[in-house]
């Protein structure tokens, strides 16, 4: 009996079992936590007690209807539309750039070269002045119709649509076109990197089951490229939110920052107006970041991305998984 227990004991001694080790301690992390907590407390105290913040005014400014209109139309809507133009334009440019057709690829290169070279404020300000080129209005019709009709001696009107150029270029449409084209130039490079990141064997496998070039791109290459394209595109979208504050260059005043700034200067409450603008920008970018998280999860399917955030606090204190 006792002998049996002895062998059992020896067996457990000789064959190590489950590990229950003390984790590595990180005393410096605790020091850092203390220092940071102190700084945060000081900052919060300042924000709450310094009267220059004038929080009641901040809330009030944020609820003014011109501000909200500027927020929806100038900031959110222009961001969304300009990104639609930018992403679709960028993908088309990237495909053109990678095409074996030298004309297409150089057109894409020239486009990218031009729009990446011009600062957005300069681009938008110039866009606003484009009306000068089309003083009779923007006409859509048969190319060179007036010259051709003159040559043939016929008097006919082949124009089917005429727009006021100033209204087109200096309004929200102008903002969307200007920012969208500029964005397309950046997105083209992002999309090209994404397409090139997909293994060549993928296109070969798609072609081997009889897919056409377009199907291969749409069904096989682009969905995989998206995994590489989405994170920098999220970055670009957030940058676009902020660049809508340049719309005043057009000049388009239905825009968040301009509206808050003018309230600030009218009421001599400049600083609270800026704080209101910052709060709005924080909210919009946060919403876009949530969207980006879900997009990344969608396009990460099948790539075995590690599950997110297994206890950041536990890791900080050295109590989480051993890494």
């Amino acid at each position: 009996m006792s002998q049996l227990r002895e062998t059992e004991a020896r067996a457990t001694e000789e064959r190590p079992g489950r590990i229950d080790a003390a984790p590595v301690r990180h005393p410096l992390r605790w020091v850092a936590v203390a220092v940071i907590a102190l700084l945060v407390a000081m900052f919060v105290n300042m924000v709450l007690t310094n009267e220059a913040f004038n929080w009641p005014f901040v809330w009030e400014a944020m609820q003014q209807s011109p501000v909200l209109e500027g927020l929806w139309k100038g900031t959110v809507l222009v961001t969304a539309l300009a990104m639609v133009v930018g992403i679709s334009g960028g993908v088309i440019l990237a495909v053109m750039r990678l095409s074996p057709n030298p004309v297409l690829s150089s057109v894409a290169w020239v486009f990218t070269w031009f729009f990446r070279s011009v600062p957005r404020l300069v681009l938008l300000t110039t866009m606003g002045a484009l009306g000068i080129l089309f003083q009779k209005g923007l006409s859509f019709g048969f190319p060179f119709d007036q010259q051709l009709m003159g040559l043939l001696g016929i008097d006919a009107n082949l124009t089917f649509l005429t727009l006021n150029a100033n209204e087109v270029f200096a309004g929200i449409a102008g903002g969307v076109i200007g920012l969208g084209l500029s964005e397309a130039a950046y997105m083209a490079e992002i999309a090209r990197a994404g397409i090139l990141s997909v293994d060549k064997g993928q296109a070969e496998a798609a072609e081997a089951i009889g897919m056409s070039g377009g199907q291969t791109m749409r069904r096989i290459v682009l969905p995989q490229a998206m995994r590489v394209i989405v994170p920098p595109t999220g970055n670009e979208t957030i940058a676009m939110v902020k660049d809508t504050s340049l719309l005043i260059g057009l000049p388009l005043s239905t825009e968040l920052f301009y509206q808050l700034q003018s309230i600030g200067s009218r009421t001599y409450q400049v600083f609270p107006a800026f704080v209101a603008a910052i709060l709005f920008y924080l909210v919009i970018t946060s919403v876009f970041m949530v969207g980006q998280y879900f997009l990344e999860r969608r396009f990460g399917r099948g790539f075995g991305q590690p599950s997110e955030s297994n206890g950041k606090v536990a890791r900080l204190l050295g109590r989480g998984a051993a890494h």
């Binding site: 293994d199 064997g201 993928q202 070969e204 496998a205 798609a206 081997a208 096989i220 969905p223 995989q224 995994r227 396009f299 399917r301 099948g302 790539f303």
Partner: peptide, 11 residues
């Protein structure tokens, strides 16, 4: 066609 490296569509 069957490839050496499979080339399945990972997505």
């Amino acid at each position: 066609m069957v490839f050496q490296r499979f080339n399945l569509f990972p997505h």
